[in-house]
Design a protein around this nucleic acid. Structure first.
Lengths: 150, 150
DNA sequence: TTGAATTTATTGATATATCAATTATATTTG
DNA sequence: CAAATATAATTGATATATCAATAAATTCAA
């Protein structure tokens, strides 16, 4: 036993990667020239207009260094503006450009369709179970202060 | 609505990344100087001693180009041997070195413990449901010939 | 209110991801 | 068998991941 195929984390990775490739391919097919990761950044900025790059990194499970570089790229692509923050000069204010907003609009039906297709045949109950298990895993592995050693 | 937090794929990614960081940190704590990805390569070669790099890439959901570079690195680290394949000169035979086997042994209890900790409080039934849903997703997004267009 | 600690972000180094082009060898087929 | 096709792997280019070191601005505390 102990084979990788039986390990749930192996299958989690497989599902995530398969879905990503599928989603990415569908973006391209629809003519949207953006990576899933870049879309995640734009979408998150849309949801949280005053977010810091640090918080953004946390939300999309990336390193701040990665976020810095992704933002540079999105600015170069004219999807995002970055200007110094009015109240805190350490920060930057990130604003979607017209093109950025347009990309988000174009992506909306695509991502809905991606999810619908991917979840075909999965019941609402199953989905709830999965969400619950994912939350448990996330909780279990998040570094917490070990009571015994405090 | 339509917020990222409610999207199952977002939570899948979060769980995968959280678990990876957790697992990686525990390897380091145990003094094993290897990345999870490198471990995956070694482990897979251990399970399939005559595997091609192409098949290996498929098994661990990576590109053949990535695999080429990871193997170079593992050879440099003296965890792996690579020699020309006896019957097919396009291929290479990948063999674990003594050090490579030792690393796998060291990792065994660690990965078991990682999984046990991560799945604490998750029932066997829930696990079955998750595995089933993952299989469905993987099946749904895997590119298949569209019957209508054939 | 100055000096220490914290927060926000960048940069450099190295590993991995992905695509496209290329090389070498094997296999198929006319 | 020779030519076409397929398979195995590498390389280059670019994007992202991660860690550590650094810089700049802010906040906290003595």
């Amino acid at each position: 036993m102990d084979k990788l195929d039986n390990v749930i984390f192996y299958n989690l990775e497989k599902a995530v990667k398969s879905y990503r490739q599928f989603a990415q391919a569908n973006c391209l097919k629809a003519g949207v020239e953006i990576t899933i990761d870049q879309w995640l950044v734009l979408k998150t900025i849309g949801e949280y207009p005053d977010i810091t790059q640090h918080q953004l990194a946390g939300r999309i499970f990336k390193d701040v260094a990665s976020v810095t570089r992704m933002i540079e790229l999105l600015v170069t692509k004219d999807l995002l503006f970055r200007k110094s923050h009015a109240e805190d000069r350490r920060r930057f204010t990130l604003t979607l450009s017209d093109r950025g907003r347009k990309v988000l609009e174009l992506m909306r039906p695509i991502s809905l369709s991606n999810r619908r297709q991917a979840l075909e045949g999965v019941t609402e109950t199953e989905l709830q179970t999965v969400q619950g298990v994912l939350q448990k895993i996330i909780h279990n592995v998040s570094k917490e202060v070990d009571e015994k050693t405090v």
